Amino acid sequence: MTMTHRYEDVWVSTADPSVIGALRRAAVALATASGFDQNRTGQVAVAVTEAVSNLVKHAVGGAVLVRHHLERPGTVELVAVDRGPGIADLGRALRDGYSTSGTLGIGLGAIARMATGWDVYSVPGRGTVLVLHFTADGLPGPPLRVSGLRRPIGEESVCGDAFAFSDDGDAVSVLVCDGLGHGDLAAHASREAVRIFMEDPHALPASALERVHRGLGHTRGGAVAVVRVGRESVTFAGLGNISGWIAHAEGRQGMISLPGIAGHKGRRPRQYEYALPPHATVVLHSDGLTDRWHPASFPGLFAHSPAVVGATLLRDVGSRRDDACVVTVKQGQ
Rank of each mutant, 00 (worst) to 15 (best):
V172Y: 06
S173E: 00
V176D: 07
C177P: 04
D178N: 11
D178F: 12
L180I: 08
L180F: 12
G181C: 12
H182Q: 15
G183V: 01
G183P: 04
A189D: 09
S190V: 00
R191C: 08
R191I: 03
R191N: 05
R191S: 13
E192S: 10
E192G: 07
V194I: 10
V194Q: 09
M198A: 09
E199P: 00
D200W: 06
H202F: 14
H202K: 00
A203W: 00
S207C: 14
L209D: 02
E210P: 08
E210H: 15
H213Q: 14
H213C: 01
H213Y: 15
R214L: 12
G217Q: 13
H218W: 12
T219N: 06
R220Y: 12
R220H: 06
G222Y: 12
G222P: 14
A223P: 05
A223V: 05
V226Y: 02
V227A: 15
V227L: 03
R228N: 08
V229C: 09
V229P: 03
G230H: 01
G230S: 03
R231Q: 08
S233Y: 01
V234D: 03
T235R: 15
F236M: 06
N241R: 12
N241M: 10
N241L: 11
I242H: 01
I242F: 07
G244S: 10
G244P: 03
I246L: 04
A247C: 14
H248Q: 13
H248M: 13
A249I: 07
Q253P: 02
G254T: 15
I256L: 11
I256T: 12
L258M: 15
P259I: 02
G260Q: 07
H264C: 10
H264E: 11
K265L: 15
R268W: 11
R268P: 12
P269I: 09
R270K: 14
R270Q: 15
R270M: 13
Y274K: 05
L276M: 06
P277I: 03
P277M: 02
P278S: 07
P278A: 13
H279L: 07
T281K: 11
T281S: 11
H285I: 01
D287T: 04
G288D: 04
L289P: 05
W293E: 11
W293A: 10
W293F: 15
A296T: 11
L301P: 03
L301M: 12
A303T: 15
H304N: 14
A307V: 09
A307C: 02
V308R: 03
V308K: 02
